[in-house]
């Protein structure tokens, strides 16, 4: 079998010499890697290449999408009605909460106006779906089906209904790659909701665990403390839930506490994510957002007058 290859024999003594080629390709690859690792000049090249492999990703994603479509189209009327009922109830509860939020937001805007600091109002959001595509199996990265054609940008925050999920690391035209907060390379500025103690939550490589390695031994932290984004660093908008402190280990020999936290979002079960466009702090909100706030404050103060 081995001898039967059609091109093995007659040219066996005129072997091409691949040595020089190997050297050239090695140098090229190493140069590529160094440039890619050191700076952002390859960003556009990467996003172009990423766009080029988009068809492959769509093909790989297709069976999962088809399966979901199939299960949706064959679900019974009763299931759909049940789901509808449940969703309606949830909307009712949520909108009740939202009424209070509107009043609070208006109050916040008024207080901020008194302090003459600009309020950060109106985060714009867009729903994106996670494509069923595995990236590097050793890292916590995902591919979402929205890209720079929908104004997605590198560094944008991703959330779901429960909390922060991660941030966009590479944008392609029709898709984007994102890093989850549990990736070992990810660090997230957080604060404890109870006492606004600021620290950094670092990913552990385990989808159900974050680590808070920079709190000193006398820090005021107890199990069950809620973590929210602090907004420092500018990537994540402040005030979104991140997780809760699950375990605190005090080693008397060490300067820092060993703290584990559980992410609020179910990172291994998410299907849809929300992309947030945060208004940068320090910049005046656009006219429509401001008039919204004024309307809100009018409705809020209206009851008092």
């Amino acid at each position: 079998m081995a001898f039967s290859t059609f091109d093995s024999d007659q040219r066996a003594f005129r072997e091409p010499n691949p040595g020089p080629r190997l050297v050239v390709i090695c140098i090229l690859s190493i140069a590529l890697m160094v440039t890619d690792n050191r700076n952002q000049t390859l960003q556009t090249v990467r996003s172009m290449l990423g766009t080029a492999v988009y068809p492959i990703r769509v093909l790989i994603d297709a069976p999962a999408t088809f399966g979901r479509w199939l299960s949706e189209s064959f679900s019974t009327r009763a299931t759909l009605l049940d789901e509808n009922l449940e969703l309606n109830e949830r909307i009712l509860v949520q909108s009740a909460r939202l009424q209070r939020l509107a009043a609070l937001e208006a109050e916040n805007a008024r207080l901020r106006a008194l302090l003459e600091s600009t309020a950060k109002i109106g985060d714009r959001v867009l729903i994106a779906e996670i494509m069923s595509v595995d990236m590097n199996p050793f890292r916590h990265r995902i591919v979402i089906n929205k890209g720079s054609s929908d104004d997605v940008y590198v560094g944008q925050a991703l959330i779901d209904a429960q909390g922060i999920i991660g941030q966009v690391t590479r944008d392609q035209v029709y898709s984007a790659e994102a890093l989850l907060i549990t990736d070992v390379d990810h660090a997230l500025p957080v604060e404890l909701l109870r006492n606004r103690l600021r620290t950094i939550a670092v990913g552990t490589g385990d989808l159900g665990r974050l680590s808070l390695p920079y709190l000193p031994r006398n820090a005021d932290v107890v199990e069950g403390d809620l973590l929210v984004t602090s907004g420092l660093g500018g990537t994540f908008p402040p005030g979104y839930p991140v997780g809760s402190v699950s375990k605190i280990t005090r080693n008397s020999g060490q300067q820092f506490l060993v703290i584990d936290a559980t992410p609020a979002a179910a990172l291994n079960r998410i299907r849809e994510v929300l992309l947030i466009w945060a208004e940068p702090t320090g910049v005046a909100p656009p006219a429509d957002a401001r008039s919204d706030a004024e309307n809100l404050s009018e409705t809020a103060t209206g009851g008092i007058d």
């Binding site: 690859s29 190493i30 590529l32 890697m33 990467r46 492999v53 990703r57 890292r139 990265r141």
Partner: peptide, 19 residues
């Protein structure tokens, strides 16, 4: 590109194996 790795990482490794 598919794995989001360093550009050139698998390229280099595969080239050496290919050689």
């Amino acid at each position: 590109i598919l794995q989001g790795a360093l550009l050139g990482q698998h390229a280099l490794a595969l080239t050496v194996v290919g050689y």
